[in-house]
Design a protein around this nucleic acid. Structure first.
Length: 620
RNA sequence: GCGCCCGUAGCUCAACUGGAUAGAGCAACGGCCUUCUAAGCCGUAGGUUACAGGUUCGAGUCCUGUCGGGCGCGCCA
């Protein structure tokens, strides 16, 4: 519809250009807006106001000339100039009606652009470390990422979903050590050895330890004394000693330079000490267990957690095309190659025993370490290789969905693409705020390490996948969000998903009733749509017509929540219609048309819910 | 301290990326079921869009500053 109007206005523009009313070379951006109020017609165009300046003319006067130059069109009933210079277009009833046959003909494809007609897009989302079960924060990323992928596909893009598995690096080592310590506790050292606070605390870690003990017995057991002696050789941290050796003046200047208070500084060093002793434990565990033994602990945990995550997401309706292993980046030398290439170009240099990426050359705040002085590549090094690989795989656009706490990471990743001669615009990072959970009116804490968190699985079991997905998809991703678990759990009308689903179920039931009454509902496609025309019917028809526009818009700005708001509007319009129009009591010809309108509504609700990954029940 | 995000009705959130009189839901109040599902509908009330400037025909939206909240600023991921 907008295209058609656009065509009319384009002709008018040409006429005005020919008459030298507006400059020949002036780019005209035609925008048609759905009006908010009926008095303003169906569409409004602001082109007269946009062109007032270049044409050096009063916008209302210019609007008159544009209207004058518009060719006739049978679908346009009336044109008015209003306000500061809006051109308001009133469509005739036929223009409203024709959408209905389009919905009925295209059915589940209505609103969807031609498949794979646009860009090839990779959407990477969730990508949580496989060090524990997914929690509700990941749930929002999952619901958003998948709805985004679906809406992008609906808008005609070829979309692939990917999960980046961080199966390499220090976090995996910490996981293995955590399991080993639990195993030692089970095997007999007992309470004498405690799990350090920076290890993984969740109950699942104990289960893995117990599982390994069941399968391997005491094969990986060592005595308490040996464990304590060897893993805590550095009882006093070098870092703390270093701090203590400084004079007061030096301390003060250090605080000043780092912009931190003395207390913060001490906290930093204490943390550093904890991390150092954890590194010692990792090294110790590897030495005691050997590579094979260590990997028993690591792989037992990794495989189990990963399959749990896959299963969890699948039950949530999220299925990936690719599970991309970070480890594979090492095995295929992609990291080495990316690093050498950056070394050659001078974007990676050595300083203080470590290798640094010169991200400041591309607008980042500071240079970043890619290879630590102990020879270990950082997570960032993998990420450089990973993002390069994504673009190398031929995607026009690569979307990363990240928790917003990682936003500071964006400049360096973009910088790395630039340094590698790739277009940084091909990477789009979308941020998702963590939802703040409330239960019983109180915030629910969330920390993976401490083990106090609500898992995605618990959430799904509480409120169901549909409600969780709809609820998450209802918020703009970057918006802070309060997730009231009690409210979401309560299956009442406060949950907008029920409202939308109910409209769908209502229509299904209406058709059942119609069939029970002997009405031939298969012929609705042949109904005389001109029977429709009251305000509520026009309102619904207008919404149906808007659906493809909403899909396109939502996809272009990466905002699937627009679909949820559209569905609420459509459900409202239908519920209202349903309450004041008795479909089955209408006379035959009108009844058939009303059924056609109802089916059109049902179809669009179904299509919209499908984009959100939410079911459309036929009864409730 | 610096950087990014955010601030809209009592609460939770929209507002077609600069359009006309800022909209929904909940909560409050008043109506509607012998009639296709009341998980619904209709009505009332609720606002200086945090604040102050600026840009222009026009600002919740853009620019500057202030205040308030979140996050980030590691040879962590």
């Amino acid at each position: 519809m907008k295209d058609q109007l656009s065509g009319l206005f384009a002709q008018a523009m040409n006429t005005l250009k020919a008459n030298k009313i507006i400059p020949d070379d002036h780019q005209v951006n035609l925008v048609f807006e759905r009006t908010r109020q009926k008095e303003h017609g169906d569409f409004a165009c602001n082109v007269a106001m946009m062109l007032a300046k270049p044409a050096r003319m009063n916008p209302r006067k210019l609007a008159e000339m544009i209207v004058e130059a518009l060719p006739e069109d049978p679908l346009v009933n009336k044109i008015e100039i209003a306000g500061p210079g809006f051109i308001n277009l009133f469509l005739n009833n036929d223009a409203h009606l024709r959408v209905l046959s389009a919905v009925l003909e295209n059915a589940e494809n209505f609103g969807l652009a031609e498949a794979n007609s646009k860009q090839k897009i990779l959407v990477e989302f969730v990508s949580a470390n496989p060090t524990g079960p997914l929690h509700v924060g990941h749930g929002r990323g999952a619901a958003y990422g998948d709805a985004l992928a679906r809406v992008l596909a609906a808008a005609g893009n070829q979309v692939e979903r990917e999960y980046y598995v961080n199966d390499a690096g220090r976090q995996m080592d910490i996981l293995a050590v955590s399991v080993w310590i639990r195993y030692l506790q089970i095997a007999g050292i007992g309470r004498e050895v405690s799990l350090p606070s920076n290890c993984y605390q969740g109950g699942y870690v104990t289960e893995f330890g117990s599982k390994i003990f069941d399968e391997h017995g005491e094969a990986y057991f060592i005595e308490t004394e040996q464990f304590l002696a060897e893993s805590l050789t550095r009882s006093n941290s070098e870092a703390l000693k270093e701090l203590e050796s400084l004079s007061n003046e030096e301390l003060a200047s250090l605080c000043d330079r780092l912009n931190k208070s003395l207390e913060e500084l001490e906290l930093d060093y204490e943390k550093k000490y904890l991390e150092e002793s954890l590194d010692n434990r990792i090294a110790h565990a590897k030495a005691v267990l050997g590579d094979d033994g260590f990997s028993v602990f690591q792989n037992t945990a990794l495989n189990s957690i990963l399959s749990d995550i896959k299963n969890d997401l699948s039950e949530f309706g999220v299925d990936y095309d690719t599970w991309y292993s970070e480890k594979s980046l090492f095995d295929s030398d992609k990291i080495d190659r990316a690093m050498s290439s950056l070394k050659e170009s001078g974007d990676v240099y050595e300083k203080g025993g470590a290798w640094w990426f010169r991200s400041t050359a591309y607008g980042d705040e500071k240079d970043r370490v890619v290879i630590r002085d102990n020879g270990q590549p950082t997570y960032f090094a993998s990420d450089i290789a990973y993002h390069k690989d994504k673009i190398d795989r031929g995607f026009d656009l690569s979307i990363d969905v990240w928790g917003s706490d990682h936003h500071g990471y964006i400049p360096r990743v973009k910088a790395s693409l630039q340094a590698l001669g790739l277009e940084p615009e091909k990477l789009k990072v979308l941020l998702v705020q963590f939802a703040v959970l409330y239960r019983g009116g109180e915030k629910v804490g969330m920390s993976t390490r401490s083990g106090e968190f609500v898992t995605l699985r618990e959430l799904r079991e509480d409120i169901g996948s549909d409600a969780a997905r709809f609820f998450y998809a209802m918020r703009k991703s970057e918006q802070h969000m309060d997730f009231d678990l009690d409210l979401a759990k309560a299956q009442n009308n406060e949950n907008p998903m029920y409202y939308v689903q109910y409209a769908h179920a209502r229509i299904c039931r209406l058709f059942e009733k119609a069939q029970e009454a002997g009405i031939d509902t298969d012929t609705i496609g042949n109904a005389d749509f001109s029977e429709l025309g009251n305000d509520q019917e026009v309102a619904i028809l207008t919404l149906l017509q808007r659906f493809p526009e909403v899909v396109e818009k939502a996809a272009s700005v990466f905002e699937p929540h627009q679909i949820t708001y559209f569905l609420k509007d459509l459900a409202t319009a239908y519920h209202s219609y349903y309450n004041s129009n008795k479909v089955l009591e209408a006379q035959e010809s009108r009844r058939l048309a009303m059924l056609a309108l109802s089916e059109g509504t049902r179809q669009v609700i179904n299509n919209g819910l499908t984009i959100l990954g939410v079911g459309a029940p036929i009864s409730m």
